[in-house]
Each structure stands twice: as C-alpha cells, then as structure tokens.
C-alpha cells in the first residue's frame, strides 16, 4: 500500500519570451513569443509509508513542481495523484491537514511577531489538541532547541533559527507526510547537521514519510536510502543510492606514491588518468578488474611507497546524470 502515488504526471507552463532592450519590450507587448515548457513530462513514482526519499535534480528540473502538485497547490495538466488514497486537488483540505510542508525559500511564519505566536496560530488552524501540541513542542525542543527561540520576533531570527521554526511549524500537527523543499539551503554546517538529525529522528520516532528536495548531496548521502533524480521534467533515476552511484560512476581510482613513475604502465581495462613526478592515478572498473591484482602487477614494475583507492561518490554520479540531461 503506497502512501504517495503519482502516475503519468504532466504539467506545462507557458512562458513569454522577452527580447532584450526597449524594442524587445515593445515587441513583447504586441507580439509576445510564447514558449511552452514541459515542467513535468510523464512523471510516475510511488512511496511507502515511513520511507525517506531524496528528490534531486538541477534548478528548474521539476522538483518543486512535483511537490506543489502532490500538496494540491498546482493542478496537473494530466495524470493521477494519490496522497494517502486521496486526490490532493479534489480533497485539498483533507490532504493538507495531514501533511506538513516546508519551502526553504519561502517563510510560512509571521514576519513581525514572536515565533510562538505563529505556532499558536497553527495550533488553531489545524485544531491540534493541547496534549498533542505540548508533546510535539516538547519533542521539538529536545531535537531543535525551539523553546529558546519562541519569544523572538521572526524577523530577528538567523536563517538557521528561522528554518528550525519553519520545520517545527510544519510538524506541530503530527503530519503523516513531510515535504521538505530545500530545507538546508544557505545554512551552515552545524545548522545543517541539526536539521538532518531532526529528519532522521522524526522518521524513526513517528514513522513520518519524508520527501526531501535538496542541492546538498550531503543531505542525500546521510538521510536518503532511496533517490529519485529528475531532470527536464522526467524521472531519470529511481532507486537505492548505492546502486545508482555504482551504476553511474563505476570507476574507482587507484593513487600510487612512488619514487619513480612508469609512464607507459598498462593493464587490461585500466586507464592511466594522471601522472606526476612521483604520483600515478589509474582508474579501473571493479566489475572486471580486482584492485589486488592491479596492485600486484604495479608493484612488479614500480616501488609503491603508499597507495589509496578512491571510491566513486555521489557527486561524480550526479555530475554524470546532469551532464547527460
């Protein structure tokens, strides 16, 4: 039973193309050039309860559009959406009462008043029972230290503090699903770490299903066993993080420190990628070359002082994907 189901989603935006200069501006008024952008082009995926997925992709790929359709803000052009068995466009109020949403680039807190006042407002809007409200606030205090911030006007909070406030306000009503759209954007390492810890804890303690979009691959690496990669409105990868990385960036790199390099060293299926005065880098694919045999062959020809094998990381894999798109 999936908690989120999206089938063949399509969404188009019409953008008026403006030409530069005054002449272009005038032309734009009388004969606007319209371009249709396929923001989502046949997007399908589903999620199980309690899952965390990382939705990643370059700017303008369709991540936010996907979230906005799943949360009922936007109407899809075609396709079907089900969130907890309900259509978020038709049963909007019912769906949104059971989800929490944080847009990292947009605040849902009231700018001029103290943070706690916004929480009180959400308590009334969502009709949260006192017990649940207090318990959630307690939990949030232990995870994010929110009580220290509660009397400060939102505009005086730092970005990291405000983001904590945003996140708390999205989970006060114990949502079943939490949508986090770039929650770590612009935050320092400590603040990022806090938020990651929070995401992990709330997923474990409350079995909250979480969709996370981010440009920070550290977020993905630490939090998301499953990755959905979207580019130009299409889902191009969907699966376990390790498998995606392995498939897209199968090359490992062996780095050798030696007294005297051998520039013409060859070994089947391997490639010398760089060679300096006393260092060599050789890339190889672990499917058809074993590292120990490669090292053995090398040590027969040069004296190895030190070596290290660099595993491919998610950055390499993502670069690969974005490059293709």
């Amino acid at each position: 039973m999936s908690i989120i189901k999206a089938v063949h989603l399509r969404k188009r935006f019409i953008v008026k193309k403006k030409e530069p200069g005054l002449k272009g501006a005038l032309k734009g008024i009388f004969a606007p050039k319209k371009i249709i952008i396929n923001a989502l082009d046949d997007v399908s995926f589903s999620m199980k309860k309690g899952e965390i997925i990382g939705l990643i992709g370059p700017n303008g790929a369709g991540k936010s559009t996907t979230i906005k359709i799943l949360t009922g803000i936007l109407q899809p052009l075609s396709g079907e959406v089900e969130v907890m068995g309900l259509n978020p466009q038709k049963k909007r109020a019912e769906v949104v009462s059971r989800i929490g949403v944080v847009f990292g680039q947009r605040s849902q807190l009231y700018w001029d008043i103290r943070l706690g006042e916004s929480f009180e407002l959400f308590r009334r809007i969502y009709r949260i029972p006192d017990e649940e409200y207090n318990a959630n606030l307690e939990l949030m205090d232990s995870l994010l230290g929110i009580r220290r911030l509660i009397d400060i006007p939102v505009r005086q909070l730092s970005l990291g503090q405000r983001m904590r406030g945003e996140i708390v306000s999205a989970v006060l009503h114990s949502p079943d699903i939490l949508f986090l759209d770039e929650p770590t954007i612009g935050l320092d390492i400590q603040a990022k770490r806090n938020i990651r810890k929070f995401i992990r804890e709330i997923n474990q303690k409350k079995k909250t299903t979480i969709i996370l979009t981010t440009h920070d691959l550290g977020d993905v690496q630490e939090l998301c066993p499953r990755l959905v990669v979207i580019n130009k409105g299409k889902i191009i990868e969907d699966g376990a993080l390790d498998a995606i990385v392995h498939r897209l960036a199968p090359e490992r790199i062996l780095q050798i420190d030696t007294d005297k390099v051998k520039k013409d060293f060859t070994y089947p299926h391997c490639k010398m990628i760089k060679c300096e005065e006393n260092k060599m880098w050789i890339s190889f694919n672990r499917e058809n070359v074993s590292a120990s045999k490669l090292i053995a062959a090398l040590s027969a020809e040069v004296r190895i002082n030190d070596l290290q094998v660099k595993e491919p990381d998610i950055e390499d894999a993502i670069e690969q994907i974005y490059g293709e798109g």
């Binding site: 949360t71 009922g72 803000i73 109020a93 949104v96 009462s97 947009r106 849902q108 809007i125 969502y126």
Partner: peptide, 13 residues
C-alpha cells in the same frame, strides 16, 4: 510572489 502557496496549504477555505 507565489504567496498563495502558503494559503493553499492550510486545511481551510
């Protein structure tokens, strides 16, 4: 400014 995003996320009219 996309401010209706927020309004549409509340379980109310």
């Amino acid at each position: 400014n996309g401010e209706f995003d927020r309004i549409l996320l509340y379980p109310m009219n």
